[in-house]
Amino acid sequence: MKIVFAGTPEFAAVALQALHEAGFEIALVLTQPDRPAGRGMQLQPSAVKQYALAHGMEVLQPLSLRTDSRDPVRAEQALAAHERLLNTPYEVMVVAAYGLILPVSTLDIKPCLNIHGSLLPRWRGAAPIHRAIEAGDTETGVTIMEMEEGLDTGPMLLTEKIAIGPHDTTGMVHDKLAALGGKMIVEALHKMKHGELDAVVQPAAGVNYAAKISKEEAALDFSLPAIELDRKIRAFNPFPGAHGAVNGVVVKLWGAEVVDGAGTPGQVLAADAHGIVVACGAGALRLTTLQKPGGKRLPAGEFIKGFALEGQTFV
């Protein structure tokens, strides 16, 4: 079974590896163009590109797949990519966190299956893992779906659930779902090959949009209940990192737990080796892992040795 694979980050690279190790022939890999990253802002290849090149796979990195783009460079690259797909013998396209819109012209060439990190239709969109944790969901999972023009609206082919634990972060859940997605797409393609893959239309009820995470929303509002802030800290770990400011210094908050306490929202009620207790709109948070600008992530006991917080206020 020949496959065209489209994906960009680590979540997708795990699936590509699973397909490759399962013996599927990867005819072509689509991934986003290299992006500047790191302190030196050097161009860095995506996780998918790194895996593909390391295993001798052909890689294509168009800026867009929309041939009707008003940008002539994007339109030219999209047309070239479209021609390449038409001239590539393959049976199915597998898509995982690609990051570019697949137009109807692409979807119509061959069947397109998507690995989506959510139990559809609960969270459609770009950030289903973050939003599930932020909303307090107790479970999530992976849906293998057939792609159509709408955003994550296509028929569901396979679904598998996992629990979200009370201390799970986005990073932790991401890794579980990436491994699960790789396993499930291999299973789905085997079923597809033997005509055993049944499509189920998504229910109309229970749809939510998982909007892309912005850096601005990672600034915590301590007038919110502690339970909501705990979810945000876990949801924004590892990106973009929840934070508060003390005396004008932005402090990133990587770990916390809900505790009893009352006071003016943002007020530091206690600061010791066990944690930094901060009053919230309802209850309090014990901050356990913090980071100041240019510093390392530190447990609270170590952090307060170089950053006095007793009697201070987070804003």
Rank of each mutant, 00 (worst) to 15 (best):
I3A: 01
E10L: 10
F11D: 01
A13Y: 00
L16A: 06
H20L: 09
E21W: 12
A22S: 13
G23T: 07
F24D: 01
F24L: 05
I26P: 00
L28F: 05
L30E: 07
H55C: 07
G56R: 06
E58T: 11
Q61M: 12
Q61L: 04
L65S: 00
T67R: 07
E91H: 13
L102D: 02
D108L: 15
I109W: 00
L113A: 09
W123G: 00
G125A: 07
I129W: 02
A135Q: 12
T138K: 12
T143V: 07
I144S: 00
G150R: 10
L157S: 00
L158S: 08
E160A: 11
K161Q: 15
T169H: 06
M172Q: 14
A179P: 05
L180V: 03
E187M: 10
L189S: 02
K193A: 14
K193F: 10
D198S: 11
A199S: 13
V201Y: 11
V201G: 08
G206E: 06
Y209F: 13
A211I: 14
S223Q: 14
P225G: 05
P225N: 05
R231A: 10
K232R: 15
I233S: 00
R234S: 04
A242D: 02
G244S: 10
V246G: 03
N247K: 10
V249M: 11
G255W: 04
E257N: 08
G261S: 08
G261H: 05
T264I: 10
G266L: 04
G266A: 05
V268I: 12
G275S: 06
T289G: 11
P293Q: 09
R297W: 13
R297Y: 12
A300T: 02
E302Q: 14
I304P: 02
K305T: 14
F307G: 08
E310L: 15
T313A: 14
